[in-house]
Amino acid sequence: MEPLSRKLIAELLGSAMLAAVVVGSGIAAQRLSPGDVGLQLLENAAATAVGLYAIILIFGPVSGGHFNPVVSLVDAALGGLSWKHAAAYVPVQVLGCVGGAVLANIMFAAPVVSISTTERITVPHGVAEVVATAGLVLVIFSLARTGRLDRAPAAVGAYIGAAYWFTSSTSFANPAITVGRVFSDTFAGIAPASVVPFIACQLLGGLAAIAIVRVLYPARQADPVSSPASGAR
C-alpha cells in the first residue's frame, strides 16, 4: 500500500499535467487554427484524449489516477477508497488543476493568470455535464468491477475524446478541471459564474452513476479503483 503522501503527490502532479494538456492544447488550437472553431475543438479533444491516456499510465499505479473529485467521491461511496483519503484527494486535485492551467498560460506567453469570460450557463450544458460525468464514472467502475482496469487508460481517454463532441458542454466532467479552467481566458476557459452550476451537475452525474453501477455490477469482482495493485485508472 502506497503511503498517503505519495498518493497525494501523484494526484497533484497528474491533475496539473491534465490541466496543462487541456488548457495548453486549447491555446495552441486557438492560435494555429484561428477562425475555425470546429478544427480547434478537434485539436483540443485529440490532445486531451491521448494526453489523459499517458497521464493515467504514469500516475495510476501510485494513486489510482483519479485527478477528479467525482471519481474519488464515488470510489469512496462504493467502498474502494476511504473517506479520509477522498477528503485529502479533492483539494489536491483542485490545486493541481489550477497550477496546470497557470503553467499552460506561462508556456504560451499568455498572462500568468487571466480569468475566463466564457459563459457556459445553459440548461443543455447542465444536462450535458450530467451525462458526461455519469458516462465517465460508468466507464471507470464497470472496468474496475469486472477486472479490466488494465484497459482503463485507453478507455477513459477514448471516452473523454468522444465526449468533447457528443456533449454540448465539451465534457468537463470534473470539478477540479472546471475550477482550473477559470484561470485561463482562452479557448478552454470557463467563466467563474458557470463553475458552481457545472460542478453541481457533475456531482449529480456521479450520483446517477453510483445507482447504475450498483444495478449493473452489484458485487465487486476485482480490486478497488484506488488500489495501486488494480492498475491505472
Score class of each variant (00 low, 15 high):
residue 39 L to Y: 08
residue 30 Q to R: 05
residue 75 D to M: 06
residue 216 L to D: 00
residue 38 G to E: 05
residue 160 I to L: 15
residue 93 Q to R: 04
residue 139 V to N: 06
residue 124 P to M: 03
residue 170 T to S: 14
residue 23 V to I: 13
residue 163 A to L: 09
residue 53 Y to E: 05
residue 81 L to R: 02
residue 208 A to C: 15
residue 89 Y to T: 11
residue 183 F to L: 14
residue 45 A to H: 10
residue 231 G to W: 13
residue 169 S to A: 15
residue 231 G to F: 13
residue 95 L to E: 00
residue 54 A to M: 07
residue 11 E to F: 09
residue 61 P to D: 08
residue 87 A to S: 09
residue 37 V to K: 04
residue 79 G to S: 12
residue 70 V to K: 01
residue 167 T to H: 04
residue 71 V to W: 08
residue 130 V to W: 01
residue 153 P to N: 02
residue 224 P to C: 07
residue 156 V to N: 03
residue 118 T to A: 14
residue 74 V to G: 02
residue 66 H to Q: 11
residue 4 L to R: 07
residue 76 A to R: 01
residue 159 Y to I: 09
residue 54 A to P: 00
residue 230 S to L: 03
residue 217 Y to V: 02
residue 59 F to Q: 00
residue 51 G to C: 07
residue 109 A to R: 02
residue 151 R to D: 09
residue 109 A to S: 12
residue 162 A to Q: 01
residue 96 G to P: 11
residue 146 T to S: 12
residue 7 K to L: 06
residue 46 A to R: 02
residue 178 T to N: 03
residue 102 V to A: 08
residue 140 I to M: 12
residue 82 S to N: 06
residue 213 V to Q: 10
residue 122 T to Y: 04
residue 151 R to V: 10
residue 91 P to Y: 04
residue 32 L to N: 09
residue 208 A to H: 00
residue 114 S to K: 06
residue 153 P to Y: 01
residue 178 T to F: 05
residue 129 E to W: 10
residue 217 Y to H: 12
residue 85 H to W: 04
residue 32 L to Y: 06
residue 69 P to T: 06
residue 105 N to C: 14
residue 6 R to M: 11
residue 67 F to S: 09
residue 36 D to W: 08
residue 141 F to W: 09
residue 202 Q to L: 04
residue 214 R to S: 12
residue 41 L to G: 04
residue 80 G to T: 11
residue 58 I to N: 01
residue 159 Y to C: 04
residue 32 L to E: 09
residue 86 A to T: 15
residue 63 S to K: 03
residue 44 N to S: 14
residue 179 V to W: 03
residue 132 A to T: 03
residue 23 V to D: 05
residue 32 L to Q: 12
residue 228 P to S: 07
residue 92 V to Q: 08
residue 7 K to H: 00
residue 21 V to F: 09
residue 65 G to W: 04
residue 139 V to T: 14
residue 12 L to N: 04
residue 41 L to P: 01
residue 106 I to W: 12
residue 188 A to I: 07
